Amino acid sequence: MMNHLDAPVAFLGPIGGPELIMILMVLAVLVGIPVIVLVVLALNRPGNMPPAVTMAPPLPPSTGPLAKLQELETLKAQGLITQEEYAAKREKIIGEV
């Protein structure tokens, strides 16, 4: 009498449930490992990597007359210097040019 587990694999002969499970496990390992290796290799291709982040070196502080005038304008806009101080300093910076 044939068991329901034996019917699909009757051509294999006297292989029962435990043997069939063992064969399937071995096949899963033999097929699974190469698939995992191929997936890992595909994901680690150089084209798949995000670009490296590079930071530009900081710019040296600008100390030219234009930078000084802009800084002076900022100080005046923030109310840190009076109109008289602004005018005097502005004339001095322009005179140095």
Rank of each mutant, 00 (worst) to 15 (best):
L69D: 01
V31S: 12
V37N: 06
L30T: 13
K76L: 09
L20Y: 02
T74H: 14
P51I: 00
M55P: 07
I93Q: 05
I94V: 07
P58L: 13
Q83A: 07
E91P: 13
P18A: 08
I81R: 05
Y86C: 07
A28G: 15
P58H: 09
G79P: 11
P8D: 08
L41F: 02
P50D: 02
P60L: 13
V35T: 13
M55A: 11
A77L: 10
E85F: 00
I23P: 03
L72G: 15
E73R: 07
A42D: 04
Y86W: 09
T54A: 10
N44L: 00
L69G: 04
L41A: 00
A28V: 08
F11L: 09
A87S: 13
P61F: 14
L24Y: 10
P34G: 10
L72R: 05
V53R: 08
K68P: 12
A7W: 10
V29K: 01
A87Q: 01
G32V: 12
P50V: 09
L41R: 11
E19A: 04
Q83M: 00
Y86T: 15
R90G: 05
I81A: 04
A87H: 04
K76Q: 15
E19D: 01
I21L: 13
L27A: 15
V97L: 15
E73G: 12
G17V: 06
M49Y: 03
P61K: 10
R45Y: 03
I23T: 08
K76W: 06
L30W: 10
L59K: 13
L75H: 09
G64M: 07
G95K: 03
V53P: 07
A10H: 03
L5I: 10
E71S: 15
M22L: 10
L75C: 10
N48H: 07
G95P: 12
H4W: 07
A88L: 01
V39K: 08
A87C: 05
L27T: 12
H4Y: 05
M2G: 13
E85C: 06
G95Y: 01
E96C: 02
P50K: 11
A87D: 11
L20T: 10
Q78C: 05
M49E: 06
A88P: 00
